[in-house]
């Protein structure tokens, strides 16, 4: 078998599968975006050209939720990387003893986003939220009502990210840990014998060797954070005053609740294009550069 044929054959199932179940629906989505069409009655549609796009691009609501989506994603991703990589390094440092640590650390992964959203709402919401009682008992805040996590419009978009961070830091930690374990120990050992200190070893050896794995983590988690829907929906439904509404929620609202299929499809298409742009950039920057 030629190399070319082998490659094609190995790619074929994935190509066919994604073609049918992702590309085709996306094509439908893009097609719909040029029409004024109601979700409940897709048969009667009026071609409107780029009108839906113009409306989406000039809508303040959509711009605001796009900015909010970005804030949310950067915030969540930053802490997930910080905690996740930190945890992976700690576990690697006590490698043989970290068995149970890792198992317990993986617990949030088992929780469905629906439950995690409800659980964090339960932890954060006023009057019954135990987090504030804990903080008050530790003297960090004066009384349990001091921070209104889910009703203060200035902080709510960050508050709802707590559930995301809790839920997915495990993913970052486990994948990073597997990456760390794949770094040949003799390289690190050699550097240690040469007198390189821990920080330099991390910066000049561990981090570069971890790069492919970290690139995957950043891209995958970044995309997931940008797409977040059910986790926030269940906590706040986008409120109060729409201050926790992210873009995919906006699309859902418009498409399903308001039945405005055309307009929602245009927003979704734009959203997808921007994501492709961001991820493409990340891909070439981190991944490609690494291959040199």
């Amino acid at each position: 078998m030629t190399e070319r044929r082998f490659v094609l054959l190995m790619l074929m199932p994935a190509m066919l599968f994604l073609g049918l179940l992702v590309v085709y629906p996306v094509a439908l989505l893009v097609y719909n975006s040029f029409f004024d069409v109601k979700l409940i009655d897709p048969a009667s549609r009026v071609f409107v050209g780029l009108a839906n796009y113009i409306e989406a691009l000039t809508s303040r609501r959509i711009l605001e939720s796009a900015v909010r989506t970005l804030k949310y994603s950067v915030f969540a991703l930053f802490f997930e990387l910080l905690f996740g990589l930190g945890a992976a390094l700690l576990f690697a440092a006590i490698a043989r003893h970290s068995h149970w640590h890792r198992t317990i650390f993986a617990l949030p992964l088992m929780i469905s986003p629906i439950v995690a959203g409800l659980l964090w709402r339960f932890l954060l919401v006023g009057n019954i939220g135990i987090l504030n009682y804990g903080l008050a008992a530790l003297g960090i805040i004066p009384d349990p009502g001091a921070i209104k996590w889910l009703s203060d419009t200035d902080i709510v978009i960050y508050s709802v990210a707590a559930a995301d961070i809790w839920l997915t830091t495990s993913f970052v930690a486990l994948v990073s840990y597997a990456g760390l374990m794949n770094i040949p120990r003799d390289v690190l050992e050699a550097a240690r014998i040469d007198g390189t200190n821990a920080i330099n070893r991390f910066w000049y050896i561990t981090l570069p060797m971890l790069r492919p794995v970290l690139a995957v983590v950043v891209v995958v988690r970044g995309i997931d954070a940008l797409k977040t829907f059910d986790l926030i929906w269940i906590q706040t439904q986008g409120g109060p005053r729409q201050q926790s509404e992210v873009l995919s929620m906006n699309i859902y609202q418009r498409m399903v609740r308001y039945g405005d299929l055309g307009q929602a499809s245009a927003t979704a298409t734009l959203f997808l294009l921007v994501m492709i742009g961001i991820a493409g950039l990340a891909y070439w920057k981190i991944w490609r550069a690494d291959r040199g």
Binding site: A14, L18, L28, K227, S248, M255, V256, L272, A279, Y283
Partner: peptide
């Protein structure tokens, strides 16, 4: 193809639910 796979992952699930 990898780029393509990455892109398919970016499609917000909320917008694919109805076509699916």
């Amino acid at each position: 193809f990898m780029l393509f796979a990455l892109i398919t992952r970016m499609v917000p699930a909320v917008s694919l639910g109805v076509p699916l």
